[in-house]
């Protein structure tokens, strides 16, 4: 529908948001956000609780319809496409609250993604019990990448919280995404687990674009080259990580006298949030 006005000179950004808005009744959860994520970028999206970060991810992934605005993948307008269509086009997403297949083991969780990628998601002639190297190699690789090989035959419902967070990433990786959205992937991981996770993200191919929501700013500045700051649904800063870190406007806008680090780690946790997903654990490490 929209005219393909992208300038032919530069390659289109991996992800483009144009004036994206999401309203829940009177509440504007995402307020007129325009943003570009460069191909191969490591982009962080930060902001206090309730800023609208997860909502924005959900709009990009197609789990929620936008109220207005446009979303483009590599220059193509996908605003009206379903979540499944976007996933097939190369969008992978993890969920802030783990969303897994609890009655299956981790290997089957990942194999579900791998078999879809192999075009066998609806195959009646292929057995899921017999080894299929195309699918099982990819599944085992992804399970190994997040360090769950030893746990790959335990029912997912019996995994620990941190293990589920890792499996969450493995499932998204197994879709072989071009654009990967990670929603607080390390929240609730042990220090060892999040160290492994940082190494995993660093080892991802450089043509894969990664956008990460994370409250742990230490982790953000280790991984991201660009940072966007969301506050009350609106974008208040967007730029290279170093600049945003120093940006007095960002600090002033919602820190007052304090530093950026303090904001995120001393945000009071709303009582209705599950304790496990808060930033309580990472707080101590950063402070120390």
């Amino acid at each position: 529908m929209s005219a393909p006005t992208a300038a032919p000179t530069a390659a289109p950004a991996a992800l483009t948001l144009r004036n994206v808005t999401k309203k829940y009744g009177a509440l504007v959860a995402v307020d007129d956000v325009s943003l570009e994520v460069a191909k191969g970028g490591r982009h962080a999206l930060i902001g206090p609780n309730g800023a609208g970060k997860s909502t924005l991810f959900n709009l990009v992934a197609g789990g929620l319809p936008t109220t207005s605005g446009q979303i483009l993948f590599a220059g193509d307008d996908v605003t009206k496409r379903s979540a499944a269509w976007r996933a097939r086009r190369g969008l992978g997403k993890t969920f802030q609250h783990s969303s897994l297949f609890l009655s299956m083991n981790p290997l089957d969780n990942v194999a579900l993604a791998a078999q879809r990628v192999a075009g066998k998601g609806m195959s009646w002639v292929t057995s899921s019990g017999r080894r299929n190297s195309e699918i099982d190699d990819l599944a085992e690789q992804c399970v190994a990448d997040v360090g769950l090989t030893d746990r790959s035959h335990i029912m997912t419902g019996n995994l620990s919280h941190g293990e589920r967070r890792q499996l969450e990433v493995a499932v998204a990786l197994a879709t072989r995404p071009k654009l990967l959205l990670l929603d607080e992937p390390a929240a609730g991981m042990s220090p060892a687990e999040s160290q492994r996770f940082i190494e995993l993200v660093r080892s991802l191919p450089s043509d894969l674009t990664v956008v990460i929501i994370e409250h742990d700013l230490e982790l953000v500045f280790q991984l991201a080259d660009r940072v966007s700051v969301l506050h009350l649904g609106g974008l208040i800063a967007d730029g290279p990580a170093d600049e945003v870190r120093e940006d007095p406007a960002v600090q002033q806008a919602y820190l007052g006298e304090g530093s950026l680090e303090e904001l995120f780690h001393e945000t009071p946790v709303p009582p209705d949030l599950p304790v496990s997903t808060t930033s309580a654990a990472p707080t101590e490490e950063v402070a120390g």
Partner: peptide, 25 residues
């Protein structure tokens, strides 16, 4: 037991995630 069957169990466990990994539910 087929791959379709695994997808069906995925549907039973978590339809939203099936869509988000690219299945047409």
């Amino acid at each position: 037991r087929s791959m379709l069957g695994r997808s069906l169990r995925g549907l039973r466990d978590n339809e939203e995630r099936m869509a988000s990994i690219g299945y047409s539910t």
